[in-house]
Design a protein around this nucleic acid. Sequence first.
DNA 1: ATCTACACCTAGAAATACTAGGTGTCAACC
DNA 2: GGTTGACACCTAGTATTTCTAGGTGTAGAT
Lengths: 115, 115
Amino acid sequence: MKSQALKGHLDLLLLAILAEGPAHGYAVIEALGVRSDGEFDLPEGTVYPALHRLEKAGLLGSEWSVVGGRRRRTYAISTQGRAALTEQASAWDRFSSAVARVIGDHSANGEPSWA
Amino acid sequence: MKSQALKGHLDLLLLAILAEGPAHGYAVIEALGVRSDGEFDLPEGTVYPALHRLEKAGLLGSEWSVVGGRRRRTYAISTQGRAALTEQASAWDRFSSAVARVIGDHSANGEPSWA
DNA sequence: ATCTACACCTAGAAATACTAGGTGTCAACC
DNA sequence: GGTTGACACCTAGTATTTCTAGGTGTAGAT
């Protein structure tokens, strides 16, 4: 817990989207927007470098293609990526319920600890 | 949403702890550990600068004292800080439920979008 | 005397996410 | 024929956050 207890969660989101099937970067951004009901409208400058990072880490593979005259780089999750997804999803569960415990429970208003 | 959609959540945690009553830095770290059931065991180098930042931003006030021969800096949340807490708590709710929507729902496995 | 817990601090490194540009294709519209 | 907007990719540099790795000093117990 001492190590990066408050890490970012973008990798988890990207892996989750790609766990449903291969997609290219632009489609990943749109899927995140749709699946989050508009909460996530991530700039390309955030997502593309992250995809590159995940590919370099072996969690994704990619392939170029041309569709309708436009080139696309389609990413697919790897076995390692699925393992990372499982791990990060459970880390998210722990993290988010810990946050809930901290911010909820505003009832225990007895003596302040500093007396 | 386009702007810092994935911000860190430390400020929220600190404000939530201090909303229950004033406390000094070391006590805040311990309270976070206890309230999160050990999930958050944050290094001092993470927490102290964050408290300074929040004070500079006007969300906290602080006062020095000496207890048992040891000097302490006790922080208290300000009115602005309470407003920020309310705002950040609801941002957290939106954020965490959006994450849940993205990583849950692994059933819709129809045609991949890339055809 | 030394060690641990308490209690504070900072500088610099590492990582993350964003801004702000850039390239090029295609379809629609004027 | 020219512009505009959606599609689709990219990177360099910046801002911010968080962590590492030290440092100082008091008090109490061994």
